[in-house]
Design a protein around this nucleic acid. Structure first.
Lengths: 159, 159
DNA sequence: TCCAATTAAGTGCATAATACACATATGGAG
DNA sequence: CTCCATATGTGTATTATGCACTTAATTGGA
């Protein structure tokens, strides 16, 4: 290996470590219960901590099964099965057997659930505007584009 | 509000929603227990799921107290207090009362803990190289720079 | 200086979350 | 058709979690 390659590798390693550190910080922010709960409470609703990310994912991912959701939240699917059942009993999501694969009881968000996530989205949008207020439009566009590309690649390389 | 501003707002909203979707995907990947656990098992070690992110954070954040860690993982500090105590009993972290503030028993990683996170880092580096193999160097640099800036801003706007 | 309020950390305890073992139904390959 | 993989669900034991309370140290005033 040439010295140029060594320099290059060190550079990449530094960037990867920086990237990982940034992701840890972002996940830390997203994990903070205060925000989600404060939003939900401000909307006059009460929802268990564990149910919240699932509701958001059901809204985002459209008809989605328990196993798929479980993979994403990193919990056993039996745990998620019970949580989705609770969301269903709260009329925040509804499920129906997929015509294509009747094993799957895919969950979709209800009007009541959507009303809840809309309130969260509004708060998130406000936060996003505050964050990007001082950014060049080009930087925002680059971030959105590159992070999407990164997310896609990260999902591919897994498993 | 002019129609130009409407277009602009819609554009920002779309980008914010895209960004949020990307972050959900990234968090999903990071949440997958298979990877971390497989890494740790490959290294011949066994570590509870809940303890793992804490170990990584202690390694990254240097001397860090229980309350600070708890804020980051989004759990009550009493829960984290017990988990850090377990990491300590496993000799993966060690704690000492800070000279500056003797209430704080700041945790730092031990040699054994560092050996564990080094193995994880190596696996993560391999993954990063796979992800970025086809990227322009400039895109990688832009992503690292912009995501760091975003993480910093997101931490500021919180609370 | 001294006291009240604040903050970091820890413990006991009740509750909720979680995962494993097991069961059922469907899909798909041969 | 048969066998195996997959999606989901339930019973149960274990663990994690958070609240109430406590201790110790720091901080900010009066």
């Amino acid at each position: 290996m040439t010295s140029i390659n060594n320099v290059h590798n060190t550079h990449i390693n530094t960037m990867l470590r920086d990237l990982h550190g940034s992701l840890i910080d972002i996940v830390s922010v997203m994990n903070r219960p205060q925000r989600d709960e404060a939003m939900v409470r401000a909307a006059g609703i009460s929802l268990d901590r564990a149910l919240f990310p699932l509701l958001v994912m059901v809204e985002r991912l459209g008809p989605v099964g328990v196993v798929d959701l479980a993979d994403r939240v990193g919990r056993d699917y039996t745990t998620v099965s019970r949580q989705v059942a609770r969301l269903e009993s709260l009329d925040l999501v509804e499920r129906s057997s997929s015509a294509a694969d009747r094993r799957v009881r895919a969950a979709v968000i209800t009007a009541a659930g959507k009303a809840m996530t809309d309130k969260i989205d509004a708060a998130r949008e406000k936060m996003g505007r505050a964050i990007f207020a001082t950014w060049d439009e080009q930087d925002v566009a680059d971030l959105v584009r590159l992070i999407r590309r990164f997310a896609d690649a990260a999902q591919e390389v897994e498993i």
